[in-house]
Design a protein around this nucleic acid. Structure first.
Lengths: 194, 194
DNA sequence: GTCTATAATTCGATAGAC
DNA sequence: GTCTATCGAATTATAGAC
């Protein structure tokens, strides 16, 4: 390993440290509540380096909140249990191995930051609606997706952001069962009854 | 009307102007996004007066976000349609004559402001849970209220905060019908199946 | 590649004249 | 009762030494 490689490697690790600290700070306190100084302190480096590596706080936020929902392909043969499946997948995003991730960053900030809200709308339009359309047909897919998202986002708000005690202590299986059933109804409602 | 009365009256009107401007600013931009200077500019007065009348920005926020859900009494004789009734009532809070009110202030700020989140939890505990308990019995009332709130808050987030296009353009009757049915199921589920 | 020092704003809050 | 002037702290971002 040459000196050049060593430097490059250290540079990459510094950038990574900043990125991880930023995602955690943004997730915990939102865009406004997380300062560049705080992020730098968490990462153990100087605040100036944050700007040097990412250009601006906005650019860092954009990168920290960029993510794919990664909805697994839901074909029509699993129709009957798609609701439960979607809720389980949603819980995995929040509570799985890489929790505290970009989704928390986005939702927490979106309420008072227009850029974050716009990105959330984009995720909805490009990832949620097509996924619902693939499952229940294109007709009424926007309304179905809207109703489903209304429930899912509220679940995330209640459980992870506001931390309403009864929702926090609810076991995952209970959430999957009940919310899954509600989602299933939204998927099964005939288009002409929407 | 004496000089004293006139002064008092003007004082009251100034305070009112500050309060209205504050509620609108907080509702539109959240706690952090609304500065005392902005609020004063909207009210057409000097920033120092905001502090003079309310003591601090925190105190002003507390007053602007204080509200009662004012859930109408739901007795058990309207059981079958309670879900739709609750959703209609919820829509009225947001879209009725005094929209842009304290609820918007609270929800928008709660995502990144712990004080606002705490107040929202208090509203949930002291107003939502008892109302659900009166309707469906005390057994499992917390879980029922949690599931119902998960849907309602998500609806508010989608329609009023994030403004997801399909949810924004959804006619109220459609929301009442579909979300009302989901709420109804949460109310009707037997306690031993929760 | 990293840090010190600081510029340029913006914030909430205060003191005191009128 | 209202405003002018300003303080002290915090913010993002930059310039330049090492």
């Amino acid at each position: 390993m040459t000196d050049n490689d060593a430097r490059k490697s250290k540079s990459r690790r510094t950038r990574e440290a900043i990125f991880i600290a930023a995602r955690r700070r943004f997730a915990a306190h939102g865009y406004d509540g997380a300062s560049v100084r705080d992020i730098a302190a968490d990462a153990g480096i100087d605040p100036a380096l944050v700007i040097r590596y990412f250009g601006s706080k906005d650019a860092l936020f954009a990168e920290a909140s960029d993510f794919k929902l990664d909805l697994p392909p839901l074909d029509s043969k699993m129709r009957g249990r798609a609701g439960e499946y979607m809720v389980q997948n949603f819980l995995d995003i929040w509570e799985g191995p890489d929790a505290g991730g970009a989704f928390t960053v986005l939702l927490r900030s979106a309420a008072s930051n227009e850029a974050a809200a716009a990105k959330l709308r984009e995720v909805f339009a490009t990832q949620v609606i097509p996924s619902v359309a693939a499952l229940a047909g294109t007709e009424g897919a926007q309304q179905r997706a809207g109703l489903i998202t209304s429930h899912m986002l509220g679940l995330a708000m209640s459980r992870y952001i506001l931390k309403l005690p009864p929702v926090v202590s609810m076991p995952p299986e209970m959430i999957v069962t009940h919310v899954g059933r509600a989602i299933q109804i939204y998927l099964d409602t005939p288009s002409d009854r929407l």
